[in-house]
Simulated scan of single mutants.
Amino acid sequence: MARYIFKRLIGMMIVIFIVLTIAFIIVRLAPGDPAALMLGPDASAEDAAALRQQLGLDRPIMVQYLSFVGNALQGNLGESLFFNQPVTQVLAGRAEPTIFLSLFSLLIALVIATPIGIYAAYRRGSFLDQAAITTAMLAASIPSFWTGLMLQRYLATDLGWFPVSGYGGPDTGFLERMRYLLLPSIVLGIVNSALILRFTRASMLDILGEDYIRTARSKGMGERRVVLRHALKNAAIPIITVVGLTFALLVSGAVVTERVFNIPGMGNLVVSAVLRRDYPVIQGALIVVASLYVLINLLTDLLYLVVDKRVKY
């Protein structure tokens, strides 16, 4: 077990190193002079030269690369050109809404997808099964921004059940801020429940056809116990896999929903950084998201041991 974790950590370090390299290359491949792009078209040549020196862009490319990697490994991702703050501080200030939005969305997706997927597999071929599959495909096909705008229009504007957009002011309490996240979480939960539902149904169908399920039924065991204790427990690993991937995608891909609901999260920050050509923030966000992604994958693999004691690494 310890050897497996050590190997995975080494693999994570390699992935992060590759991401560091890609982030460095992206900025250098930007058309034109990066310093001039950051300052805008009205900047003078002297200002561009001063910024190049400040960013170290006037040094040899290999020296720049080694300095960038060395600083990143020490937790120094540079300084935001727009906020005039360290990138780590800027990202930390935007992490809360994104993380809670992802957690709430995943919880809603699980509440929707898991019971429906289990029941659809149990009633395979029935009207409810076909309706569940059709609804899942429909939810996956509709763009999240359209769903968000529709719910925003009717549930927030017309009925007033939720705040329309935003994340509250500086003095807003924690519970009130979480209230701002409910409607966007419902949007993302509906969209992402489709994949979890289909995987839950497929995994349960495989298990419900096994011999030991028929044996349990032949011994007079109740259907609830057969489905929930025997079938669901053995079907859990594929479900956990897709749940882990869904959470990782939510953390890194909630950009559209954050823009629609004007949530000051990491996705909204990255879009703004691209428009402002704040390259240090773009590089830092790419590195942080990639690190979170590989960490979530590792935690998902370790969760297999909790669910199924037969799993050995």
Rank of each mutant, 00 (worst) to 15 (best):
L295K: 05
R277W: 05
P184R: 10
N76F: 04
I22F: 12
L232H: 13
V15N: 06
I99P: 05
P60E: 05
A194W: 13
G253V: 12
L302N: 02
G267V: 10
V15G: 11
K312P: 03
A92C: 02
R214F: 11
P41T: 11
V111K: 14
L232A: 15
V226N: 06
L183T: 09
A72H: 08
A273T: 04
L232C: 12
L103W: 05
Q64F: 00
P34F: 00
I25L: 13
G125M: 02
A2F: 14
L20T: 14
R229D: 10
L292N: 09
Q54T: 08
L205G: 07
A254V: 00
L183D: 01
N76H: 09
Y313N: 03
S291I: 10
G169T: 04
R52A: 07
R124H: 02
G209E: 11
I116F: 15
I22Q: 08
N71D: 15
V226C: 08
R153Y: 11
V27Q: 14
G11N: 15
Y180S: 06
A43P: 09
P264T: 08
S252A: 15
V87P: 13
D278E: 09
Y293N: 13
L29R: 07
L245V: 15
Y304W: 08
T114Y: 14
P97R: 03
A121N: 03
D47H: 10
F24Q: 14
M38K: 10
D278I: 05
L77R: 08
R8C: 05
L295M: 13
F100V: 11
I26K: 02
L302M: 12
Y279W: 01
A235R: 03
A109Q: 00
I10C: 11
T215R: 04
I237H: 09
L175E: 01
G169V: 02
I118H: 04
R201D: 03
I239Q: 07
L81W: 06
T98C: 12
A194S: 15
G189W: 01
A136M: 02
V289Q: 12
L249K: 12
I287S: 03
F6Y: 07
V15Q: 06
P115H: 09
S126M: 04
R124W: 01
R179N: 14
D33C: 05
G222C: 03
T147Y: 00
I240H: 00
